[in-house]
Design a protein around this nucleic acid. Structure first.
Length: 432
RNA sequence: GGAGGGGUGGCCGAGCCCGGUUGAAGGCGUCCGACUCGAAAUCGGAUAGGGGCCCAGAAGGUCCCUCGGGGGUUCAAAUCCUCUCCCCUCCGCCA
């Protein structure tokens, strides 16, 4: 959520910045502005009336000691009713404003390149050299199925498409990757590991910006009675960021650096036909997620280091990748600035997203009311929140399969993972 | 599922039976000052959040709202009624 005060003070600037994202949200600024003006007029009216009423009420109590004459009562009741009516009206306007505000995306940071589509995302750097294959590298789904390790048919039988069953060493590889990443981030990068609920309330989803706008992307529970429905998390960003919702953090305890391994559940509505083969785009996938809660002053330094932390995973696995900066048209709803990590997939012959690291500035903190108290005293301020994949485990598994495949269809296990796989050096066809 | 207890300011905790002078005692924490070479201890003071208006703005002033959330009673509600959410304890059940 944006700061309403900012909209009030610099409406054209906000509208202009929003327009670079390409959506129609800039128009909402006008509506908010108009509603806000109406609201303030009503609030003033109501407040004046309340001041009068409170004063009179106190005096009446003191003066009549409980025996208030009927005519005085009558007058007071009338005023009380008028106040109630005004409050109702204000509440209506508040809802109108909130509804608009909740759908307005974050403002891109001034450094974010203006662009019209993902084609305008500039490459920041590249690491590693794609391997020179002496044979035609296979796509992971072909490779995995041939080895009997990836099973899409049975997954579809169990659930539907966009699910995968991992057999034997592939399941182990998924687990090894997860643990490798967690160890790296907790032991070397200073993150605290957190285990959270995977089902969260609608309020939590609202706080981190998933609701109300992206409801169709979420899986949710169906409750037998009228009790609250819960949503399956689409990313651990949700529970990790909302962790400190409504809290005041001491500045000395910032930045908070959290890492969580969780499954992620996404409906992938509107992506029919996209990435239908293999396990690139799934309804369920594992991810090691990094989240930071910082002060505004250090949030952009923290973004740079977070990207480095995610990159380190790929470096240790010796997987070629590049870093791109998302342009205004491509950054997500919550983000002010985002870097994507794209790993080289020989089977597709291109770089594919494997991590996305964003600084959301105060956008989520304002929704979730995550504040900090400045060290030198003074009023509490909203924190800045950041999140990044470190990394998407399923896609990392794909990258390992494709980059480490050999001519005979087997796959070499990267050195860094062997300790996590009982010393296993190679994936070969699973006999069964 | 049954029975009971509770949700108050950054934190802890009183107030609720007997509605008004309590936006809220006390403690902790934090900040400022004194003392000190410095610190601790001690002493003095300050310290909820949000919103409106005045002010160019800050400072400051003033008013309004908020005692889990909604609704109600009342001139007046943290205090009474009601619905609801959450937490805790005991019993039962299940893992």
């Amino acid at each position: 959520m944006l700061d309403l005060r900012l909209i009030r003070e610099r409406p054209e600037g906000v509208a202009r910045a929003l327009a670079t994202r390409g959506g129609a949200e800039a128009d909402r600024v006008k509506h908010v502005l108009a509603a806000d003006a109406r609201r303030r007029a009503r609030v003033k009216e109501a407040d004046d009336l309340k001041a009068e009423h409170n004063q009179a009420s106190k005096e009446a109590g003191r003066q009549y000691r409980g025996n208030i004459p009927e005519d005085v009562r009558e007058a007071m009741r009338a005023r009380s009713d008028r106040i109630k009516a005004l409050d109702d009206e204000i509440r209506g306007i508040d809802e109108e404003i909130a509804q608009q505000m909740l759908d307005i995306p974050n403002l891109p940071h001034p450094s974010v390149p203006v662009g019209a589509s993902e084609a305008d995302n500039p490459e920041v750097r590249r690491w590693g050299t794609p391997r020179d294959f002496t044979f035609t590298p296979k796509a992971h789904e072909e490779l995995g199925e041939a080895l009997g390790l990836l099973d899409f048919e049975r997954a579809a039988k169990l659930a539907k498409s966009r699910f995968t069953v991992l057999w034997g060493p592939a399941a182990l590889l998924e687990r090894a990757l997860s643990q490798f990443m967690l160890d790296l981030h907790t032991r070397e990068h200073g993150y605290t590991e957190v285990w959270t609920p995977h089902l969260v309330s609608g309020d939590t989803m609202l706080r981190t910006g998933q609701l109300p706008k992206f409801e169709e992307q979420l899986f949710k529970t169906v409750e037998p009675d009228d009790s609250r429905t819960l949503y399956l998390i689409p990313t651990a960003e949700v529970p990790l960021t909302a962790l400190h919702g409504g809290e005041f953090l001491a500045e000395a305890t910032l930045p908070r650096r959290y890492v969580a391994f969780t499954p992620c559940y996404r409906r992938e509505a509107g992506t029919y036909g996209k990435d239908m083969k293999g396990m690139i785009r799934q309804h369920q996938f594992d991810k090691v997620e990094l989240v930071k809660v910082t002060t505004p002053a250090q949030s952009y330094d923290e973004l740079e280091s977070m990207v480095k932390h995610a990159e380190e995973v790929l470096r240790r696995l010796d997987l070629p990748y590049r870093v791109v900066e998302l342009c205004t048209a491509d950054i997500g709803f919550n983000a002010a600035k985002t870097y994507d990590l794209e790993v080289w997939l020989p089977g597709q012959g291109k770089y594919r997203e494997i991590s996305s690291c964003s600084n959301c500035e105060a956008f989520q903190a304002r929704r979730a009311e995550i504040r900090y108290r400045p060290a030198g005293g003074g009023r509490a301020e909203f924190c800045h929140t950041l999140n990044g994949s470190g990394l998407a485990v399923g896609r990392t598994l794909i990258a390992v399969l494709e980059n480490y495949q050999d001519a005979d269809g087997s796959v070499t296990i990267p050195q860094a993972l062997r300790p996590y796989m009982g010393g296993l050096e190679r994936l070969t066809a699973l006999a069964q």
